[in-house]
Design a protein around this nucleic acid. Structure first.
Lengths: 136, 136
DNA sequence: TATAATCCCTCTAGTAGCTATAGCTTCAAG
DNA sequence: CTTGAAGCTATAGCTACTAGAGGGATTATA
């Protein structure tokens, strides 16, 4: 049996976040000690580790809900798990592409070595979209 | 003079967002018509365009506040504008690096072509961080 | 056993940057 | 003069937490 603090240390999930996940129904409410403190089992630990890891990989809480549900049913087909993962991969790739366009533009802007605001490329470009090279 | 709807169309900023910016003090409260509706000038238009463009480039509202303040003082040195832009560029690059690590891991996971959850790489990897190749 | 240090409890509110809704008023065209 | 679109305020909701107040529980040491 672990206290919430021990669970937090083992999983790297902060204490208020654990309570938040419980409130969201992502983890079951655990048993309580006589003094009303949460006491977790190994199941609780592995479920929270799953969540932590999924969050690290950027899955949304809603997706994690689905993935957890699936993981409880090993006999089911795993097409849903695949499509969640593949969709998430696409989202990540979209975000990368978008950020790379931003990066190019920001690099160009930041090169300005003017002394004052009147002819600073940063300010000028922000004020006028037509000075941009890429779409965004 | 533009109504809020016309301003919205010209800048691409949604109406509730314009009112939100006003509340945040990012744009000045404009004059009102007799019937209490907002009426904007060309200054209002260009300020909002500046904001829109900065948001598109991913600057935070707080950074935009600083950049707007600077843009009002053309005689000032523009070191601050540079450091905001350079810092933002760094943030963007960090996020790209992080997302690329995610991308690698998600690609690896998604390749699983198992039929059911019991031996699905997606679920398995989420349950056990040790199956990952990269850090995150 | 007493006490101090640490941990845990609930509840509420705050973060960023909007977006949505309800219930009303004003404006512009026919 | 009427009707439909557009605008008004105020409030609440979104994601995924995080922080703080004001208490009670547990544990280690004296």
């Amino acid at each position: 049996m672990f206290s919430i603090g021990q669970l937090s240390k083992r999983t790297g999930v902060k204490i208020p976040t654990i309570r938040y996940y419980e409130q969201m129904g992502l983890i079951d409410a655990p048993e309580r000690s006589e003094g009303n403190q949460r006491r977790y089992t190994k199941e609780g630990l592995s479920r929270l580790s799953f969540i932590r890891h999924s969050r690290d990989l950027g899955f949304s809480v809603e997706n994690i809900r689905g993935l957890l549900e699936l993981s409880q049913h090993p006999e089911k087909p795993c097409d849903d798990a695949h499509s969640i993962a593949v969709q998430h991969l696409k989202d990540v790739q979209d975000r990368i592409a978008k950020l790379r366009r931003l990066e190019r533009e920001l690099k160009r802007i930041s090169k300005c070595d003017s002394g004052n605001v009147a002819d600073c490329a940063v300010i000028e470009t922000l004020a006028d979209h037509r000075l941009c090279e890429t779409e965004h």
